[in-house]
Design a protein around this nucleic acid. Structure first.
Lengths: 203, 203
DNA sequence: TGTACATCAGTGAACGCGCGTTCACTGATGTAC
DNA sequence: TGTACATCAGTGAACGCGCGTTCACTGATGTAC
């Protein structure tokens, strides 16, 4: 692809170059210089669009949280067809996101980025979590009040389990496993929901 | 502490210097040069004890898995007093380890180390997992065979949930939470065990 | 017990490298007249 | 429609830095006689 002196959309091209680098070599493998090179541009050009290396990385993560929040929202689908099915779908969406967008995922969760330093990032991350919280809240209403854990506790449980399955069994820090990550997560959540009293005790 | 030309136990001193660096600044913050400096020694001296930076880091992780495996074994205590209590104790041990040995924990799980490149590492990691598997197996025997998930599936669930709680709520990539990580994990495992049919449905 | 000597843990200087960042600049674009 | 000019995206060279690693060396230790 040819281009003249001006690139056209260098900002997004840099984001995508960074994404490819991260997906291929891990968050450590990402450098400003290499992202610039992959976008066919001098490292100095990056500074026309970002204040520096960190801001480029943060933008990658931000776009990741955007996609993530949208996927969760789509999976939740306002609680349709049932609050239970919608809740299960959000759990699956977590894993599906990590599988389909590994560059984004790593920028978000494994790059050592401090959300506190990037206000926009924290905001869009909160949006994703809010969807989970709503799904859990909707689900919790089906429980008798006396034995109903707080909705945010339930969503914390599912985030933790989903995140753990991704880190250990999809991204591979836990050694090989005889099951697909999807099956591990599915059964874990199934047993958990039975424990909440939302699935019948028979398989 | 004074010392002469020879250090005495430089190898272990380097491991401990690395540990302190990692605990303080994260696995990225660790460099061979700084570890050497912290041990009051020239960077070149490191090469008398390790083949290079990676092997030093791997040794830190190896010692971590050693401690971890011992803690799990201690918590499991051959299934005493009951298989259920022993199983719950191993879950708690995971979190306790991450809290008490943050440097080891990060070297093991967040340093980007490839266990495949360090045979000794994979071996001792397998030992830790084996303890979890035994705990799960012991527990599973209390279940009627028809509705008993494979023991390794159960231990995968608990590893994942424990790991997720540590990453998100102890190490802080999931935003602030109104509960202590210990409480999140405890309730998650409680609900899960009820789902397995091992705890009565009343609180 | 005293001395010669082999061993080897640590030194200090140097290396090449790639990193993030800066700076004065240049060339393309698009707008005002 | 044609030209002058302001804007600004990208260049290219340079910087200082800290990294991991190497090498010839030196000084402490401990053992053989």
């Amino acid at each position: 692809m040819k281009r003249g002196y001006h690139h056209g959309n260098l900002r997004q091209a840099l984001v995508e170059a960074a994404l490819a680098l991260i997906a291929e070599r891990g968050p450590q493998g990402f450098t400003l210089s290499e992202a610039a090179k992959a976008a066919d541009v001098t490292p100095a050009a990056v500074y026309r669009h970002f204040t520096g290396r960190d801001e480029l990385l943060a933008e990658v993560a931000r776009q990741g949280f955007d996609i993530f929040a949208a996927l969760l929202e789509f999976a939740y689908d306002e609680g349709r067809p049932t609050s239970l099915a919608a809740f299960e779908a959000t759990g699956r969406a977590y894993l599906a996101f990590a599988r389909k967008y590994p560059g984004h995922y790593q920028a978000m969760f494994e790059s050592g980025l401090q959300p506190g330093n990037h206000p926009g990032l924290a905001q869009v991350a909160a949006k994703a979590r809010d969807t989970m919280d709503r799904a859990a809240d909707h689900l919790a209403r089906a429980l008798p009040e006396t034995r109903r854990p707080p909705a945010r506790m339930i969503s914390a449980h599912v985030w933790a389990t989903s995140h753990g399955v991704v880190e250990l069994y999809l991204r591979g820090n836990g050694g090989p496993q005889p099951w697909a990550p999807e099956d591990i997560l599915e059964t874990a959540i199934g047993i958990y929901l039975r424990g909440l009293g939302l699935l019948s005790p028979d398989k």
